[in-house]
Design a protein around this nucleic acid. Structure first.
Length: 790
DNA sequence: GCTTAGGATTTG
């Protein structure tokens, strides 16, 4: 007992000058003089002569022992003036006590809440938390060789908390795990030998699945079901000690399982023998006695001797091996949603991974976290792809949080991974947290006071936070985080307004009649096949109709050709054309072409001809030789138009349709001055037709991270594709331009991450449907696409 | 007051 190193251990001391009549414990064995003056807590001030002072108070609050590494510790406690001494008018009766080094460690082990301590050799500081905690404006700092703290034990007869506490101990008996019988409600202690972080069940609750053991060496499985995550056992690593009250035993598969039952409560402790016994629980009130501390100590000492747990050293990024699974303790720097089943986390632990890492690309706009980060931090950062159920958990994480990722897989990078930036070099490593809970796969935030993160925190905080000249849009980061250059800028807004870009979520939250600028990817589009997007619409009545196919048109022309009738309009010159047949199977046929007499002698004679009795094929052939072809039929000897379901006018490969509703058909001679070039509007007017226009109607599903938005492309489709829809209706080349554009924006069989980001202008408006219900619509406007040059 | 799960690697 005599030859102990200073500061190292608790010493029982019954000859103290300070407290001659009551046996006590000294946490520090520095010598104390008898010349000390006891100062009441309210009387402490910066001016107090600490060399001659002692302060006595009851431990009101005992904080966790915080390790700063290298045997450096700090602990905060609050002591208060004992009630017997306190006068009702006293203020500042509670004061913060800050203990450093071995004294902190020893205090943590030896002193309990409610006990009375005497401190000497302290210094008085200004309390930085006085405003926040409303305690004494000063604090007592205990560090160095002079600092001393002495615990006053209670005499056996006193009514201190400790005595009444020990009376309660008998209320809880803990059943050894080998003595469990089915169908009982028991209290147990155990060492955690397997655990899964709480995971969502198919029922209403989360389930913590674990296995525990104790000195009996019996291993018992436990399933804890709670709806609230905070009610679950706080297990951070194998070897943690768990105490459960009111668990039910249940026979399952030839052994006994434990299940939480009504009144269930749980407390856990760090399992390392050298660490402070600090109960981890979210319970407002729980019983915790000296005896519990002893049980915990015993269990973890026993566990350490048993080789119960795989002796895996803590793995840091610098130790990671290819194809290994490990638990990583780290700090979250950034997070970004990738798709519905994957979230990308960027983390670091202050060490550098020795292997080349696979690069990922995520658009800067969906990243949550600081917008700039120092190169020093960035150099050590790694990306983790978090899948499925864990992606859900990851969504809740806040950048800056300290995390433990369980069963993280250091895997060979694959170019097929979501958001892979494409180029994959040999031996690149990627970190995957796979879906499911096998082997305890999961993710959890470690509390700020967790001893596990103190060292990590010290390391990471020693790095510069950010350089102002580096941010997310900087090329230094773009490799990992930016949009890859080959997909940059492929739609361009043509609008003149300078609106800020907003997120899809913000678009959805906005009121009607707004304009937005958004940056999004194209997740999907309709219609397929693409040609169905092309429509006809009337600029007058705004009706939209489908374009009839050639089978329908052939049939319509064939039917009309069989009964052409005679045309005897006096302003027309007619000529019959006989096409000989190939034989009895295909007899020859006759159709007529008609020309306006006025045109016949002019230079415009080939500009417009009227045709009767011709098939669609005939018309198309004539269209190669004449500018405009107007198919007509006889109606009482006069020329009249065919049904407006078919094109009423042909020009080359172009076809013109009329609106059935808005046309008042009557074929009259087209009067033109010889120098005037005729066009389809003039012809339409002469025959009483309201021309239909071509339109392109598409539904686009935009995606931004996990958010999607359905928008329409209609009014500005020509601008979008940089093509004339009349051309699209008439030629393959223009059609190809549309399909190539769509393939570029929404590449078939390519992942979202590889798709380009579109800079779009959207309008928002409401429409009323047939049931007078209002719908909000979004339409792409004033935006054009440019394909990358080959 | 008694469903959920009852450990045991993704296949990105």
């Amino acid at each position: 007992m005599a030859a102990r190193a200073p500061h190292s251990l608790l010493v029982l001391c019954d000859t103290l000058e300070l407290c001659p009549t009551t046996p006590g414990r000294v946490v520090d064995q520095a010598s104390h003089g008898s010349h000390l003056t006891r100062i009441p807590i309210p009387g402490i001030s910066i001016a107090t002569d600490c060399s001659k002072a002692s302060v006595r108070g009851k431990v009101f609050q005992k904080g966790p022992l915080v390790s700063l590494g290298d045997e450096e510790y700090v602990l905060k406690a609050v002591i208060e003036e004992e009630e017997s001494v306190r006068s009702s008018s006293s203020r500042n009766t509670s004061i913060n006590l800050i203990l450093f080094g071995p004294l902190a460690k020893n205090f943590s082990l030896a002193v309990n809440q409610g006990e009375v301590v005497v401190v000497t050799g302290f210094t008085v500081g200004k309390s930085p938390t006085a405003y926040k905690d409303q305690l004494h404006p000063c604090n007592l700092l205990l560090s160095g060789d002079d600092a001393c703290l002495h615990v006053r034990s209670c005499p056996p007869h006193c009514h201190s908390t400790r005595v009444s506490k020990s009376a309660k101990v008998s209320k809880y008996t803990y059943v050894p795990l080998n003595k469990l019988k089915p169908g009982a409600v028991v209290n147990v202690y155990g060492v955690v030998v397997f655990f899964k972080q709480p995971y969502k069940t198919r029922g209403t609750d989360f389930c913590s699945s674990l296995k525990i053991t104790d000195k009996s060496n019996q291993k018992v499985g436990c399933n804890i079901f709670c709806e609230r995550l905070e009610d679950h056992p706080k297990i951070f690593q194998l070897g943690d000690i768990i105490r459960m009250h009111r668990v039910k035993t249940q026979a399952f598969g030839g052994s006994i399982n434990l299940l939480n039952t009504f009144g269930f409560s749980v407390v856990t402790f760090d399992g390392r023998p050298e660490s402070t016994v600090v109960p981890r629980t979210s319970s407002k009130s729980f019983h915790f006695e000296q005896e519990d501390e002893q049980t915990v100590e015993e269990l973890r000492t026993w566990a350490a001797s048993q080789d119960l747990l795989p002796s895996t050293p803590r793995i840091q990024l610098s130790d990671v091996q290819h194809r290994s699974y490990f638990d990583l303790t780290c700090q979250l720097l950034w997070k970004a949603p990738v798709d519905t089943t994957c979230t990308l986390l960027t983390v670091w632990d202050g060490t550098r991974c020795a292997h080349p890492l696979q690069k990922f690309s995520v658009d800067a706009s969906v990243i949550e976290g600081p917008s700039s980060l120092s190169q020093e931090r960035l150099d050590l950062a790694v990306s983790i792809l978090v899948f499925d159920n864990h992606a859900e958990t990851a969504k809740q994480l806040k950048p800056g949080a300290y995390l433990r990722v369980y069963n993280l897989h250091a895997t060979t990078g694959s170019s097929g991974a979501p958001c892979s930036s494409g180029v994959l070099e040999q031996n690149q490593l990627a970190f995957h947290l796979h879906g499911g809970t096998s082997y305890g796969r999961g993710l959890r935030v470690l509390p700020d006071d967790s001893p596990d993160i103190q060292e990590l925190r010290r390391v990471v905080e020693s790095f510069p936070v950010a350089n102002s000249d580096i941010d997310l849009s900087d090329s230094a980061i773009i490799e990992t985080w930016g949009t890859p250059p080959e997909t940059l800028g492929n739609t361009e807004r043509r609008c003149s307004h300078a609106l800020q870009q907003v997120t899809l979520a913000e678009v959805k939250q906005s009121g009607p009649d707004h304009l937005f600028h958004v940056n999004a990817q194209l997740k999907s589009y309709q219609p397929r096949p693409l040609y169905q997007a092309l429509k006809l619409h009337c600029p007058k009545c705004r009706a939209i109709q489908e374009i009839p196919d050639d089978d329908f048109l052939s049939e319509a022309f064939l039917k009309a050709s069989k009964a052409p009738g005679r045309i005897a309009d006096p302003w027309l010159l007619s000529e019959s054309i006989h096409l000989p047949g190939d034989g009895p199977q295909s007899p020859g046929r006759t159709f007529s072409i008609h020309l306006s007499k006025e045109q016949f002698n002019g230079r415009r004679s080939r500009d417009l001809i009227y045709v009767t009795g011709a098939t669609l094929e005939d018309v198309c052939q004539l269209a190669a030789a004449y500018k405009y072809i107007l198919p007509v039929m006889s109606s009482g000897g006069s020329a009249s138009l065919m049904d407006l379901s078919a094109p009423f006018l042909f020009r080359g490969t172009k076809r013109y349709y009329g609106c059935k509703q808005c046309s008042q058909v009557s074929v009259k001679e087209l009067k033109v001055d010889g120098s005037e070039e005729i066009n389809e509007e003039m012809i339409a007017e002469a025959v009483g037709v309201q021309l239909l226009q071509y339109g392109l109607q598409m539904k686009l599903e935009l995606q931004q991270g996990l958010d999607t938005l359905q928008v329409i492309l209609w009014r500005d489709a020509e601008t979008f594709f940089q093509v004339s829809l009349e051309d699209v209706a008439a030629n393959q080349e223009a059609q190809n331009k549309i399909s190539e554009t769509m393939d570029f924006l929404c590449p078939p069989a390519r992942r979202m991450a590889e798709r380009p980001w579109l800079d779009l202008c959207l309008t928002m408006y409401t429409v009323q449907d047939d049931n007078r219900l209002k719908h909000v619509c979004y339409q792409v406007c004033q935006t054009s696409t440019t394909l990358p040059s080959a």
